[in-house]
Design a protein around this nucleic acid. Sequence first.
DNA 1: TCTGTGTCATTGGTCCGTCCAATCGACAAC
DNA 2: GTTGTCGATTGGACGGACCAATGACACAGA
Lengths: 243, 243
Amino acid sequence: MAKTATAPGERPDNRITARLIGRIKNLIASGALAPGAKLPPERTLARDFGVNRASVRQVLKVLEIMGVLSQRVGDGTYLSDSAETILNEPIDFLVLLDDLSQHELFETRLMIEPELTARAAERATAEDISALRNAILGMERSKTTRERLHADMAFHEAIFRASGNRICHLLFRGIHRTLLMSMGQLSDRVSIEHPLMFHRRIYSAIRERDAEGARKAMQEHIADARSLVGQENSGLRRHVRSR
Amino acid sequence: MAKTATAPGERPDNRITARLIGRIKNLIASGALAPGAKLPPERTLARDFGVNRASVRQVLKVLEIMGVLSQRVGDGTYLSDSAETILNEPIDFLVLLDDLSQHELFETRLMIEPELTARAAERATAEDISALRNAILGMERSKTTRERLHADMAFHEAIFRASGNRICHLLFRGIHRTLLMSMGQLSDRVSIEHPLMFHRRIYSAIRERDAEGARKAMQEHIADARSLVGQENSGLRRHVRSR
DNA sequence: TCTGTGTCATTGGTCCGTCCAATCGACAAC
DNA sequence: GTTGTCGATTGGACGGACCAATGACACAGA
């Protein structure tokens, strides 16, 4: 009866945008498009793909927001050489739509970060350890709440990097970003001494290659942080704001 | 000298798209836009935001690809009521750009899934346990490789759901999706007996509320799977294809 | 020769209007 | 009451236009 432009039973994925994204994926997967490479101009892509430039721009905009590529007027479009920020926006909307709670985020941290910290103790390079030390120094020297939170995040970020697990690294960077955003307002009544003490313990354990000690210290650190900020179990939706 | 349209030192975030996404975030955060709600028509949004419809379409397309909302011609645009697929595309590109290896994905699984399985043993509802049983049945009855992989994934998916941790749930759904995609071709030479045996052990442990047993069984399951498929430590980039 | 400068083609950013196709609701016909 | 039809609405795609930023290049000046 109805002429099915889309195969029956299949998802109506015929949207030009989705197909173009698939083609770009294939280009990367096949090696035709290497990370860091410069893409053809939008007008050329539109002609080659046989679609309108507006459609191409939608696709490129999707990938740009995800951090897959970056565009500069007058210059061109470049594929990112790593997926640094690729989980940031999605995590924001994850918190927004599912209205994730601090409870849930802390549980996730408690489940994974101690393990990551143990890995970090086993694998940390001299550079990683130096980054950890600098983060502690930065926290000690911090004047404003903003500086403190920044240094706090840098410490955990350094641990994720040292763990050598890029997936968890990017995931938890996103989670911390969201979490710190929601803690900004109530951080004044939270002492700086607690986290600093735990950071020092974790740092020592990692430097001493004491995986178990590092794991345990991180576990206590997160549990402590949770007890300090989180009686409230409400969702974080209202805290997420555009940056 | 140069007339700085953008504040000096600030990121050139003037892109209309990024700002509009921020405004939409705020609308959700403030509750003005509830999950499941219907958005105004594109033409109206364009007028209200004071931008062109093409710009609005770029924004909506970004959010649609991420799974934040869905659009239907002749009907309208609806905000998703949950972020089911929000991490799928990002994980695909994460694997592509950073060329993540099976080794890295398995390590991540090994780090987290046993813990999630323990949580599942503590929290699983009757419905969850039923889903687990069905997944095992589906695997036993599977004729084709495709069916088998589907049932396999359904089992793990049920565990993630039972764990009650939505972040890990969505993250690992994405990881499994990518991993299964790359295992499809070599799955013929992988026996079905091994995973099935482990699945039964895990299922029993969860049903018995044996968190430690469940954790250990899942740990052995993943380690076993890793040893079966993964001598090779090469990146998965070439395996990722559009669906 | 080297340096600075200005020109100009390229390229992404945005806007405009148009047409198409799917959907939904109201209304007419049976 | 049911069915069919028509029209308004809405997302999907197209084509063209202009702007602003960029970079490459030729040219003039030191």
